[in-house]
Design a protein around this nucleic acid. Structure first.
Length: 426
RNA sequence: GCGGGCGUAGCGUAGUGGUUAACGCGUCUGAUUGUGGCUCAGAAGAUCGAGGGUUCAAAUCCCUCCGCUCGCCCCA
């Protein structure tokens, strides 16, 4: 057993039974993005590692601890895409999209890779639906992007979700806030949890996010970023809220919402199931990144976007009781039991397929009973039976598998495809 | 990366030291000459996640590893 291969840790096979979920999600993504004027982009599975080291920030967990980095045979440092935004920004610059009509609205579904300890809803390879709008500072765009996710989840039958909305202020004023926050925490440092002591040095905003009991007393009195936004950031934040409210999108301000990537400013958001007990429940999240393109060496260009994990969306659909009927393997199953019938049978199947009718052929040599069983489990509507008599007469038996009495009739081979077509349409 | 739980045929389970590891679903075959679904009969399929140890004897106890899972961390 152990000598057999297994899918690598944290990866999974999507078997045929699960495909309807993926199809439903992908269809809904296509519709929703189309309705919002987004166009699809696909970027490579791997990029120069620097795209993420510079873009996402080389001290973020995603880059520092979780990114798959490797050197190729030519000595190039490459990384499997851990998140979509910097890759799309790289493409924006590379292809001169600044000279396209602004803003540029792009979406993709892309495999993402993070070396993380897997859990349900957390995988080393997952698939993300990503939307990015580049070249706009309009708060209506922030609301629009949040609205895309809202619409998507609604279409997929996911109920009872809430948008958590926050603002990380603009970069300058956030820096001074972080100093104030550190000043506040510094005297208490020794009383904090080990995690929070690490956070103090690494990512002070996360201090307010701690779940450790020892840290709770200090959270209350700590200064909150969202209470002292710069006037412009405050105005922006208000405008986003106004637009969301007008569209009937339920949101809750989360003063402690912090995201794990360095480039965010102003609007940040997450969408989570209301009842969610589990830690890996966040369906999607994102925010504004007005400084990112510049970080990547481009002209100052505002942007906003999000990622949403398709595996998590599907888990949430299942939690909401969404199921799919198994679909038939084919419409027509050809049963054949005559020596030398192979070529005729094969030609008939081709003819059916050319007419748009899915058809499969029973296994040569198997008993008629076995092939009929195959026809039944395939879910096909019709069985076409070709035995010695039919082959000699240039005919075939057409049997309606849906009828309980097993109605069947013999038809000339030449007219079979047309007859089946007519019945399927009826 | 840290801590806990779990791991028996494709799937779901029974079996907690002692004969050829059991059952359901599924798969395959058959039930008088070439016909599915229901029923019946039969078959295949498991070195009990892997490796090592304790014991006269291990799926069952111990250790290590692998995988899944829950919480933390982090994130989608």
């Amino acid at each position: 057993m152990s000598s057999r291969f297994q899918a690598p840790r944290g990866t999974q096979d999507v078997l045929p039974d699960m495909q309807p979920y993926w199809q439903a999600v992908n269809d809904a993504i296509r519709e929703v993005t189309h309705l919002h004027g987004f166009r699809r982009i696909d970027t490579p599975v791997f990029e120069n590692a620097g795209v993420f080291e510079k873009g996402s920030g080389d001290t973020t967990d995603v880059v520092e601890k979780e990114m798959y980095v490797f050197e190729d045979r030519g000595g190039e440092r490459l990384a499997l895409t851990p998140e979509g935004t910097p890759a799309i920004c790289r493409a924006y610059l590379e292809h001169g999209m600044a000279s396209w009509p602004q803003p540029v609205r792009l979406y993709t579904t892309h495999a993402m890779f993070r070396y993380d300890r897997p859990q349900k809803g957390r995988y080393r390879q997952h698939t993300q639906f990503d939307c990015e709008v580049l070249g706009s500072v309009d708060p209506l765009v922030d609301a629009e992007v949040i609205g895309i996710l809202w619409d998507l989840y609604a279409r997929l039958g996911i109920k009872n979700i809430t948008v958590r909305l926050g603002s990380l202020d603009d970069l300058e004023s956030r820096r001074s806030y972080i100093e104030r926050l550190k000043d506040y925490y510094r005297p208490h440092l020794s009383k904090l949890s080990e995690d929070s002591q690490r956070r103090f040095a690494r990512n002070p905003l996360r201090l307010l996010d701690s779940k450790d009991e020892r840290d709770q007393p200090f959270k209350e009195a700590a200064p909150k970023l969202i209470e002292s936004l710069s006037p412009l950031a405050q105005e922006h934040h208000d405008a986003v809220q106004g637009a969301l409210a007008a569209a009937g999108i339920q949101f809750a301000i989360d003063p402690l919402l912090v995201r794990g990537l360095d480039y965010y400013n102003r609007t940040v958001f997450e969408i989570v199931p209301d009842d969610d007990e589990r830690a890996q429940g966040t369906l999607g999240g994102g925010g504004r990144y007005d400084g990112l393109i510049e970080l990547l060496g481009g002209p100052s260009t505002p942007g906003i976007g999000f990622g949403s994990g398709i595996e998590r969306i599907i888990l949430e659909m299942q939690k909401n009781g969404i199921t799919f009927e198994p679909s038939p393997v084919a419409q027509v199953y050809i049963v054949h039991r005559a020596a030398g019938a192979g070529p005729k049978v094969f030609a008939l199947a081709s003819e059916l397929r050319a007419a748009g009718v899915p058809a499969v052929i029973g296994e040569t040599g198997k008993s008629m009973k076995a092939q009929m069983r195959g026809a039944n489990t395939s879910g096909a509507r019709f069985a076409v039976i070709i035995g010695d008599d039919e082959l000699a007469a240039g005919a075939a038996v057409l049997k309606d598998l849906a009828s309980e009495d097993g109605a069947q009739e013999t038809l000339p081979l030449a007219s079979l495809a047309a007859a089946i077509g007519a019945r399927l349409r009826a």
